[in-house]
Design a protein around this nucleic acid. Structure first.
Lengths: 218, 218
DNA sequence: TAGATTGTTAATCGATTAACAATC
DNA sequence: TAGATTGTTAATCGATTAACAATC
């Protein structure tokens, strides 16, 4: 553990942290922001669990992966915990994100990201269609997909969103990873092959709808 | 097991089937369609596993929840298995889907669904904004959100997509479930409370991006 | 028949939840 | 101090993978 002024900070242990834990952190963060906005200074894992429909032990265990942030008999300082989770996720430093594919979905994701108050911002949009290159999506201009590697390297981009058709996805991913991208959010309906150490999250709308249909049957 | 003409068909056991299994079925289905298109008639779990980066035992076990569809020493008939999975998911009967929220994201999801060849189709789009009501998204016209219950009941809609702002989501969900919706795909960044027996899948783009940032840090 | 591959049981792995000593 | 709540260990639960008899 790293202690600064008696407070355990960002003490990522050498344990491998489960993906499920990482995916819950934004949920905690958002709720802490709401609590802070409504003037709540301290919150217990029990209260968080009630609000978020989660097990209090799970919340405590999730947080304990990164350090000791609570006070026994008291709970967690809302403002402090909010800052800590943001730090864990790396939301303090500027993270450039590339979006590849300016179709309906890509365009909407881009607009959505500009509307919403998110610390992670799409900074580059690429498309291969000459009719789209140079057009604007909110404050961004669609760039030529041929310049992908060059721009990604120049901006030192590490995160990318894949919103291209299925058959275009793998080549795009190969080019992105070769240019330094290490975290991918994939909206194309294909399983992607990536080099060791690169993280891929699948977020395919069509598959989601198909599996949802199972639950609608009765 | 239910056998029709010597073939075990859609024999959903009284076992509770894990959600993880259901979510893999569309992946299998899509790949089987591709195999069929390229003229492959029979496939083994080993081959499927290689193609989909999955464990063959897992594929066999997933399928075995629903019946015995393979031939020992041979493998699975591609066409037959494709049909069976489509039946399991309920993709044979027409499923009307309501989309609530015609903002950037909702509009894109609607367009995307019309472009892609998916058996599950968005049939109704609702919005509360008078400026949007009556406008068209592809072949659909945006309906007045005040008519939500009426239209959902009339079309016997059981699936819905939530693409409204966070603070509007819960009331919309309450109205949808009261009108008969039992499966929800939620793009709003809030945890939803639903009646017993209603299935909710969370698909919040902003949270996805935030957790992805963790993996981009180094 | 010999080789291959299923369906299923058993073993393993990992994640969630319960319990509780430590302590604010 | 008494009551509350953390951090953590142990127990439970569930999902994945391995192993193999059955059999095409």
């Amino acid at each position: 553990l790293i202690h600064i002024g008696g407070i355990a900070v960002l003490s990522i242990k050498n344990t491998r942290i489960p993906d499920a834990v990482i995916r819950r952190l934004p949920v905690y963060l958002r709720h802490l922001e709401q609590l802070l906005a409504s003037g709540v200074a301290v919150v217990s894992s029990q209260e968080l669990g009630d609000d978020l429909d989660a097990n209090p032990a799970q919340i405590r265990k999730d947080l304990a992966y990164f350090g000791e942030f609570g006070r026994k008999g008291v709970g967690y300082d809302v403002r402090q915990l909010k800052t800590i989770i943001a730090d864990i996720l790396g939301l303090n430093r500027q993270q450039a994100v590339a979006l590849v594919g300016a179709g309906h979905l890509g365009t909407a994701l881009c607009h959505h990201n500009q509307q919403v108050d998110s610390p992670i911002r799409i900074t580059h949009v690429f498309d291969a269609d000459p009719a789209k290159i140079g057009t604007r999506i909110g404050s961004l201009t669609v760039l030529d997909a041929r310049d992908l590697e060059f721009e990604v390297r120049r901006a030192q981009i590490r995160m990318a969103i894949i919103a291209v058709p299925a058959d275009a996805a793998q080549p795009v991913v190969d080019r992105l990873t070769s240019a330094g991208v290490v975290a991918l959010l994939n909206f194309a309906p294909v399983s992607l092959r990536v080099p060791e150490g690169v993280y891929v999250r699948h977020a395919d709308f069509t598959s989601e709808l198909l599996s949802l249909a199972y639950y609608a049957q009765r």
